[in-house]
């Protein structure tokens, strides 16, 4: 299973994400924001957390117009798998690959703590390692994780079973407590919590490891 992790100026979870994917068995390559193409034969492109381009204008907005951006969009449009974590989720919404937007936390504080998540669906390669309804503990570290979508969009997410994770309890004001959403083809996941920070016992938790193990295992079979 071949994966690439994209690094923007200001990304700071790129190495952790690469390590988590490698530990799960993926062959991981690194891609720089100034690259204009992705390596051939990729199964997964992962967009990491951090503060791409200093969060200037809006979180993820400048990254969505960086030199690598057209290749990311093309990968998703041809049915490739993508995982965006934290700032990566913000980048995927700014790219238009996931619906909705992420704005300033309702409490205005930067939230850096373990969060309890509820797995809302296991019907996709990312959360297939969990049970629907399972509660897991995964750290969050964000200032702009307040997920917003209009009523029509929320109805579509619910009807199509595209809410991957919710916060239990709510932490940042997100509509319907949403912590992660899937694309219509279920091959793109964006989530604010950091499973790569809970994928090794040395990090204080392993509830995120099943995401990488499930993902790499299923894409290796595909």
């Amino acid at each position: 299973m071949k994966a690439a992790v994209v690094t923007f100026p200001g990304s700071n979870c790129d190495r952790d994400l690469a390590v988590a994917l490698k530990q799960a068995g993926a062959d991981v390559q690194r891609v720089w924001h100034k690259d204009t193409s992705l390596p051939q034969g990729l199964d997964l492109v992962a967009v990491p957390g951090g503060f791409s381009y200093g969060d200037y204008l809006r979180c993820g907005a400048i990254a969505a117009h960086s030199p690598i951006a057209p290749a990311l969009r093309a990968h998703a449009e041809r049915g490739g798998y993508m995982l965006g974590i934290c700032n990566g989720f913000q980048v995927l919404t700014e790219l238009g690959l996931l619906p909705g937007a992420l704005m300033r936390n309702a409490g205005l504080t930067f939230l850096c703590k373990p969060a309890t998540l509820r797995v809302e669906t296991a019907d996709n390669v990312f959360t297939a390692g969990y049970r629907t309804g399972q509660q897991i503990s995964v750290p969050v570290a964000h200032h702009d994780g307040n997920y917003q979508i209009d009523a029509e969009g929320l109805t579509a997410l619910r009807d199509q079973d595209r809410i991957a994770f919710t916060y239990a309890p709510a932490i940042n004001g997100s509509v319907a407590d949403i912590a992660g959403v899937l694309s219509a083809n279920r091959r793109v996941l964006g989530m604010m919590p950091h499973p790569e920070r809970a994928a090794d016992p040395a990090l204080g938790g392993t509830d995120g490891a099943a995401l990488f193990a499930g993902l790499v295992g299923r894409l290796a079979l595909a």
């Binding site: 204008l57 809006r58 907005a61 117009h65 919404t93 700014e94 619906p99 909705g100 937007a101 704005m103 917003q148 979508i149 209009d150």
Partner: peptide, 8 residues
Amino acid sequence: GLLANTVI
């Protein structure tokens, strides 16, 4: 295209 995110 860039300056505003018209979702919000």
